[in-house]
C-alpha cells in the first residue's frame, strides 16, 4: 500500500524529469494530432460561440489543435473515454468514481472559492407549498441524466434514505439529458419538481434570470466535489501535465479570467480524488438498495 502510494507520488515526478526533454520534443512532433476533449452538460455547453473562443484559447496554450466532442448524454462521453477515443473530458463526479480504471482526475472547477457544488431541488415558482422532496409524492419529476450526481444520484439517494424508491415515488419521471433543460422543464410546468446541478442553476441565474425566475429552489444538498475534468487512463503524462497546467493557469491571465467569468468559475485546481468519496458512497448505497429491493 505504501509502495503503491510512493510509486504513485514519485513516479510521475521521476517520469516528468526523465521525459521532459522528450516531452518537449514529442509536443512538437504531436502538433498535428488534435487534443480531443469530451464535454457534457455539467456546464452550459450549449454556448457554441463561447466554446469556440475557449477552444482557441486552449489551442494557443497547448500549441496543439483542440477538438471538443459533445454528445447527448454522459454515458456516450464515458464510453468514448473507455474506448480511448477521447483524451480528456469534463464529466460528472459519478462516472469518474464508477470508472476508476478508465479515467483519472485532471482538474476540479473552483466555484465560489471551493472545488465544491450542490444539487438543488427545484419546483415551479408558482408552487409555494413544497418544502422537501417528500411533498412531491405522485408528481412528475425531471432528472437530468442517469449518470449525473446532482441530477439523479443525490435525489435518488435522498429518497432511499427516506425509504422511498424513485420509480414508485413519482407518478412520472423523465430525463432531460441536461441540467439547463431540467430548469426549463420545471419552469414550463412540464415537471412539478426537478433535480439540478446547483452550479448550473446559479450560472443560469446570472445569464437567464427570466428562466430561473420561474423556478424556486426548495432544498440544497450537502456539498460534493465539483464536476471534474478527467483524463483517459492512458493519456501521455506530458499531455496530462500540459492540459492540467493550462486549466489551472486560466485564472492567471486576463484571457483565461474572461473565459472563467463566462463559465461563472473562479478557476480550476488539480483537486483531490477524496473530494468525490461522498459521491462514491452514495452510488454504492443506491446500487445496493436497488439490488436489495429488486425482486
Amino acid at each position: 500500500m505504501l509502495a503503491w502510494a510512493l510509486r504513485r507520488a514519485v513516479l510521475p515526478l521521476l517520469a516528468a524529469l526523465l521525459v521532459f526533454p522528450l516531452a518537449a520534443h514529442s509536443q512538437n512532433s504531436q502538433n498535428g494530432a488534435p487534443v480531443r476533449i469530451g464535454l457534457t452538460p455539467v456546464f452550459l455547453d450549449d454556448q457554441t460561440a463561447f466554446l469556440n473562443v475557449w477552444r482557441e484559447y486552449l489551442e494557443k496554450r497547448l500549441q496543439r489543435p483542440v477538438v471538443f466532442v459533445q454528445r447527448g448524454s454522459y454515458r456516450e462521453i464515458t464510453d468514448l473515454l473507455r474506448q480511448e477515443k477521447l483524451d480528456f473530458a469534463w464529466v460528472c463526479g459519478l462516472p469518474m468514481v464508477e470508472n476508476p480504471q478508465h479515467m483519472k482526475l485532471l482538474a476540479v472547477p473552483v466555484f465560489k472559492g471551493k472545488p465544491l457544488y450542490q444539487s438543488y431541488l427545484i419546483v415551479p415558482a408558482s408552487d409555494q407549498q413544497t418544502r422537501s422532496i417528500l411533498d412531491l409524492r405522485g408528481k412528475v419529476f425531471a432528472f437530468s441524466d442517469p449518470d449525473s450526481n446532482s441530477g439523479y444520484l443525490f435525489p435518488s439517494y435522498a429518497l432511499f434514505q427516506l425509504k422511498e424508491r424513485p420509480s414508485a415515488f413519482f407518478s412520472r419521471s423523465f430525463f432531460t439529458w441536461a441540467h439547463r433543460q431540467v430548469v426549463e422543464a420545471v419552469a414550463a410546468g412540464l415537471a412539478q419538481g426537478g433535480a439540478v446541478d446547483g452550479y448550473v442553476w446559479e450560472t443560469l441565474q446570472i445569464y437567464h434570470p427570466e428562466l430561473t425566475g420561474k423556478t424556486r429552489v426548495v432544498q440544497k444538498s450537502p456539498e460534493f466535489g465539483h464536476t471534474p475534468f478527467v483524463a483517459r487512463w492512458s493519456v501521455p503524462r506530458g499531455d496530462f501535465g500540459a492540459m492540467q497546467r493550462v486549466l489551472v493557469e486560466m485564472s492567471n491571465n486576463a484571457e483565461g479570467t474572461n473565459l472563467l467569468k463566462k463559465l461563472n468559475l473562479d478557476g480550476f485546481t488539480p483537486g483531490e480524488l477524496s473530494l468525490f468519496d461522498s459521491i462514491a458512497n452514495m452510488a454504492a448505497v443506491v446500487r445496493s438498495s436497488i439490488h436489495a429491493k429488486a425482486p
Binding site: 425531471a142 412520472r172 423523465f174 430525463f175 432531460t176 439529458w177 433543460q181 422543464a185 414550463a188 412540464l190
Partner: peptide, 8 residues
C-alpha cells in the same frame, strides 16, 4: 424511447 423531454 419514452423520452418525454425530447417529445416536449
Amino acid at each position: 424511447h419514452d423520452d418525454v423531454w425530447r417529445a416536449f
